[in-house]
Amino acid sequence: MSKKLSAATARWLNPDEERAWRAFRRMMIAVQTGTARDLTAAGLSEPDYEVLSTLSERPDHTSTLREQATKMGWSRSRLSRHATRMEARGLMRRAPDPADGRSCFLILTDHGLDTLENAAPAHVASVRRHFIDRLAPDDLTALEHIALKLEGFED
């Protein structure tokens, strides 16, 4: 049972923690805004690119809706609605999952693979411009270490 926090019992951030938190948020927003804008120029959203790139790496370019939703941190219903829009654009298609009547397979189409292959060079250039090339190798190592801690893979 969780206790409701009040202003009196909250563990407030000290000035150093507050600066670090705000810097982290600004960094995430700046990088995400830049790469999202660049993907839009290629006709894709960030979620489109995530679905397409993940499917391209899977055997037979196929994943279950459940696996993809988990990877993206989305609910199945949210991904299902997004997949409907991607399907209408011919980027992917769905097929029933015989092992789970409540789920389906997401399958990358040839058009989806072509779209991904056309967008990938510009996307990697965008990631470099907005993120990688602005950091030293030691920064990247430290950031990876921090990410692993925050993802719960390292204590």
Rank of each mutant, 00 (worst) to 15 (best):
I29R: 14
L44R: 04
R81L: 12
M72C: 01
M28Y: 12
M27T: 15
G73Q: 02
D38A: 02
M27Y: 11
R37N: 07
T33M: 05
M27A: 15
M27N: 14
D38V: 07
A41F: 03
T64P: 04
L79R: 06
M72P: 01
A69M: 02
L44P: 03
S75W: 04
V51E: 00
L65Q: 06
I29M: 14
D48Q: 00
G73A: 07
T33E: 11
G43R: 00
R76P: 13
H82Y: 07
T54L: 14
H61D: 13
V31T: 12
A36C: 05
R76I: 14
L52K: 03
E87Y: 03
M27W: 14
T33H: 11
L44S: 01
S77L: 12
R66D: 13
L44W: 00
L52P: 07
R37I: 09
G73C: 06
E87P: 02
R58G: 08
A83N: 05
A30M: 13
R66S: 15
T54W: 03
D38R: 11
S53I: 12
E87H: 06
A69F: 01
L65F: 03
D38S: 07
R37M: 11
A41I: 02
H61R: 15
L39E: 03
Y49F: 06
S77F: 07
Y49I: 10
E87C: 06
L39N: 00
M27E: 15
E67H: 11
R37W: 13
P47D: 03
R76K: 13
A36Q: 01
H82S: 10
P47Y: 00
